[in-house]
């Protein structure tokens, strides 16, 4: 297996995630895009772990950790989104501009 393949797939996934984060209005969609980016990283970690034959399996272990952290992040993120929704009745990012220059 050429390492280039998983690396390129991961790069494309990451870029798509970037686009989603930058272009989507809905906060939940933005969270999904963040998940895409995290998965791109995961793919990289696994591929390089396989390529380097790490005896500690640090790549795969780290992937597990990232998955766990991603789950926690989604939980916290959704809680924040819900809190914002409760107070503002909106979760569109470009409508949450209270910190902008008036």
């Amino acid at each position: 297996m050429h390492v280039v393949y998983p690396a390129v797939v991961a790069a494309l996934l990451f870029s798509i995630g970037v686009y989603g984060v930058l272009a989507r209005r809905n906060t939940i969609l933005v969270l999904m895009s963040v998940e895409l980016m995290l998965n791109a990283v995961n793919l990289n970690l696994v591929a390089f772990d396989v390529w380097l034959r790490d005896v500690l399996h640090s790549g795969q272990v780290l992937t597990l950790f990232v998955i766990v952290i991603a789950a926690a992040e989604v939980g916290i993120g959704l809680a924040i989104v819900l809190a914002v929704f409760r107070t503002r009745k909106a979760i569109e990012l470009d409508r949450l501009r209270e910190l902008g220059e008036p």
């Binding site: 494309l12 930058l22 272009a23 209005r25």
Partner: peptide, 26 residues
């Protein structure tokens, strides 16, 4: 209205990211 007005810029940045990452990785 799921996309913001930022879409074109976002696409450019994303494409540039993809270009840089892919070229570096390859």
């Amino acid at each position: 209205d799921l996309d913001s007005g930022n879409r074109v810029v976002a696409a450019v940045v994303a494409l540039a990211t993809a270009g840089v990452l892919v070229s570096v990785v390859v």
